[in-house]
Design a protein around this nucleic acid. Structure first.
Length: 418
DNA sequence: AGGTATTCACATGAAACTATTCTCTGAGTTAGG
DNA sequence: TAACTCAGAGAATAGTTTCATGTGAATACCTGT
């Protein structure tokens, strides 16, 4: 037994396909960023005045996920800091904050708290009036003469949750500060974001805009090849694997992050199969695995009311499937997977709750929950109107059949614990 | 036939409520001088 | 009298509920030919 285990451990070391896996991890910042020269140059030239201690224009970066926005911003940040260090010029601080992180998201309060923490202050997680946090923030940054560049990643998320007042306040903060100057770099995935926000904020915030176009398949290939050559050992990648990865990701609006993920998972899959090479089929397996893990993970972490709703949907879909196949002789024109509607889900959910002795939520709430599942990509939802028959959501489960059973198990399990 | 008006069954929004977590404050208590 | 404890007030958040209003199109109901 022990020998066996030792064997496994040995093989992990010896047969590893990776040379340095961390290079494929998404938080890795590479030395160079291919195909983003123009954007980086632009950012740099816009932010350059901070080196002389001048306030710069506020800046806005746009582009879909995985187009290198964050990476470019961080890259410029590092270069600027290096340079500022060498110059020994005016004091410069650059803080990066991802507004989408769990602990930060949603509220003005938490974003400020997080910023304060990064600047070396302390703020309790709750209990203080927001006003107090603001003044604390001002106090901290206005201690000494300096320039502060705030890089706010994914602020579209935040602004959707809270009003754009936050950004407005931030841009106007400069007038309240005596020694310090702030400039804001916003990063957003949502290209329509700017159109929706308050015009006042818009004019002050987006003095400069840079758009990050998606990578095309060739560029993705280039990126992947560069990283792969360092991350993997030599000769472990089958011909065409990189191209296929790139093609997959290019289909998803050129998401480089996804491409790298795919390659890494494919490597892990191949490793687990004791393959000496990463083959094309491993990419497909990796793709499935990513999808599966995503869905199951979501289901696992969802609270029980959500699970009950989802369970209702799964059950209803099953029943519908049976019914239509039986009725097919009667009405052959009927579509194969007849859709489910909000009302069905809610009534099924009610009985389900009763038999589980769980609290029944209002229809209003269930409606929201259904919508959230749609956002998570577990179901597909469309609002349709059946004329006099009313208006409702048409719900379709989009998780693949093999996963459905697994999902059912998970939910049943967690419900039994109650 | 053609044009309005209704109506269904929810969707969508806004506000208010609840439970929980956390800070802060000040009264009461305690121990030591 | 200084230090300590502990309850209560106030804030913020997440997750709801309550109340109100909105909506797309199949049907009902007119209208005049």
């Amino acid at each position: 037994m022990v020998a066996k285990i030792q064997e496994i451990f040995d093989s992990v070391d010896k047969d590893s396909l990776f040379r340095n896996k961390s290079l494929l991890q998404i938080n890795h910042i590479p030395e160079e960023i291919p195909h983003r020269d123009d954007q980086i140059k632009q950012i740099a030239s816009i932010l350059a005045p901070v080196l002389r201690g001048e306030r710069t224009s506020n800046l806005f970066l746009y582009g879909k996920t995985g187009t290198g926005k964050t990476l470019s911003a961080l890259f410029v940040k590092d270069e600027l800091l290096k340079r500022a260090d060498k110059n020994n010029g005016p004091k410069l601080k650059i803080e990066y904050l991802n507004c989408k992180l769990k602990k930060v998201s949603d509220t003005e309060y938490r974003i400020l708290a997080e910023l304060i923490k990064k600047l070396g202050g302390e703020v309790p997680t709750t209990g203080l009036p927001t006003e107090a946090v603001y003044s604390k923030f001002l106090e901290i940054i206005d201690q000494e003469k300096q320039l502060l560049v705030l890089i706010l990643d994914e602020i579209d998320q935040t602004v959707k949750k809270i009003s754009s007042d936050f950004l407005y306040n931030l841009t106007r903060l400069n007038s309240e500060l005596s020694k310090t100057q702030i400039c804001v770099v916003g990063i957003s995935n949502d290209l329509t974001f700017l159109e929706e926000i308050d015009p006042r904020v818009k004019s002050s915030l987006s003095e400069e805009e840079i758009v990050f176009p998606p990578y095309n398949a060739l560029q993705l290939q280039d990126i992947l090849a560069k990283r792969a050559s360092q991350a993997f050992k030599e000769g472990v990648i089958q011909q065409g694997v990189i191209a296929k990865c790139a093609a997959y990701a290019a289909r998803e609006h050129g998401d480089a992050r996804r491409a790298l993920d795919l390659l890494r998972i494919a490597g892990e899959v191949a490793e687990r199969e004791r393959s000496t090479k990463i083959l094309l089929k491993h990419i497909d397996e990796a793709n499935d695995k990513i999808e599966r893990d995503k869905v199951l993970d979501v289901i696992k972490t969802e609270p029980k009311q959500f699970q009950l709703v989802l369970y209702s949907i799964i059950k209803l879909q099953e029943n519908k499937g049976k019914k239509t196949s039986g009725q097919r002789t009667l009405s052959s024109r009927k579509e194969e997977n007849s859709p489910i509607f909000t009302g069905d889900v809610f009534s099924f959910y009610q009985t389900l709750c009763q038999s589980n002795r769980a609290e029944i939520l209002t229809q209003r709430r269930v409606s929201d929950i259904i919508q959230e599942f749609d956002m998570l990509g577990i179901i597909n939802v469309r609002v349709i109107s059946k004329g006099r028959g009313g208006r409702m959501r048409e719900i379709k489960l989009v998780i693949p059949p093999q996963i459905i059973n697994k999902a059912k198990e998970i939910i049943e399990d967690s419900l039994n614990y109650i």
